[in-house]
Design a protein around this nucleic acid. Structure first.
Length: 296
DNA sequence: GTCCAGGCCAGAC
DNA sequence: GTCTGGCCTGGA
């Protein structure tokens, strides 16, 4: 890999294991817009376009080399060797091998913990297009504009302090998140009061961190695991959603069950230290190919 | 009009 | 601790 920056655009050449579609359309990230084959993303202080040309990735408006090392390297998880992990996972069984081949170029983004908490509270019992719209609206209500693209304005995701000032009614009427508005309002208050201390989450064990997050309103097992996997570098977080229930029952469980805890235990047993990534490959493969039957 | 989607909560047992 | 019903909303 070679890093350059020209006119505020970052060029990463000789790159492997980077496929924008697999990265942004696997449900881990909500603030992106597809623009032909490129992805316009809103992250941190950046409004950037991710362009793939052969084995070069261009982060348009991504800043200088310093921005690469202070932000993008961690965000895109560039220090991790995904081909090595795919290779290891492929040895587990053929199903996983196919999923790992299909998902080549998928990466787990290291995103902001608070943004993940709010985003995944909104995600519960919801659909991606709606989730994306709601998150954009919330950012718009708070109003920290970071730039324009094709005549549209884009806004930074709010801080805890900023979001806690937004009323439940605005969350319902403008962001259209229904009953989740109260979860977000309560969660913000709990975080402000340090009933759950976000600054300390990284110091806890996975189990402790998971149970801390579950104290938050609107955060259950699945949401907590998404938060930990995408916002706290926890590779063994194994989010069990309807798709995971489907493929785990179809391929991996001896007895059919919808019990989240049992499915998670089994996932960790099979996939071990890379359970989170295994989940992502299998999830992405199953969903894109509509594989798996409803359980019950 | 009906059903459901990348779950959670509260209440019942 | 485990299970069940109800749930805002938008789209098929």
């Amino acid at each position: 890999m070679k890093i350059d920056s020209i006119n505020n655009d970052i060029y990463i050449s000789d790159i492997k294991e980077f496929e924008p579609k697999h990265i942004f359309e696997n449900g881990q990230c909500f603030r992106w817009y597809k623009d032909n084959d490129d992805y316009l993303i809103i992250v941190d202080k950046y409004l950037s376009k991710i362009i793939k040309k052969d084995d070069t990735i261009i982060i348009e408006n991504g800043g200088t080399i310093e921005d690469y090392y202070s932000f993008w390297e961690n965000y895109f998880d560039f220090k991790r060797d995904y081909s090595l992990i795919r290779n290891d996972l492929s040895k587990i069984d053929d199903r996983l091998k196919i999923a790992c081949e299909y998902g080549e170029g998928l990466r787990i983004l290291n995103q902001d913990l608070f943004e993940m908490i709010i985003s995944f509270i909104i995600s519960a019992n919801n659909q991606i297009p709606n989730i994306k719209k709601s998150i954009e609206k919330i950012s718009m209500i708070v109003g920290n504009k970071i730039g324009e693209y094709n005549g549209s304005s884009f806004y930074k995701f709010p801080s805890l302090l900023e979001l806690s000032k937004v009323s439940i009614n605005d969350l319902k009427d403008i962001a259209r998140i229904g009953y989740r508005a109260e979860y977000i309002y309560d969660t913000c208050n709990m975080l402000l009061n340090k009933e759950v201390d976000l600054d300390n989450i990284s110091n806890l064990s996975y189990e402790q961190a998971h149970s801390e997050l579950c104290k938050l309103k609107g955060v259950g097992q699945k949401v907590a695991d998404c938060i930990l996997l995408f916002g706290n570098k926890r590779n063994i977080a194994f989010p069990v959603d309807t798709w995971v229930i489907k493929f785990m029952n179809e391929y991996y469980l001896k007895e059919k069950t919808t019990n989240i805890k049992k499915i998670k235990q089994e996932g960790l047993k099979i996939f071990k230290d890379n359970a989170g990534l295994a989940q992502q490959y299998l999830f992405y493969y199953s969903r894109e190919n509509k594989i798996g039957k409803k359980v019950k």
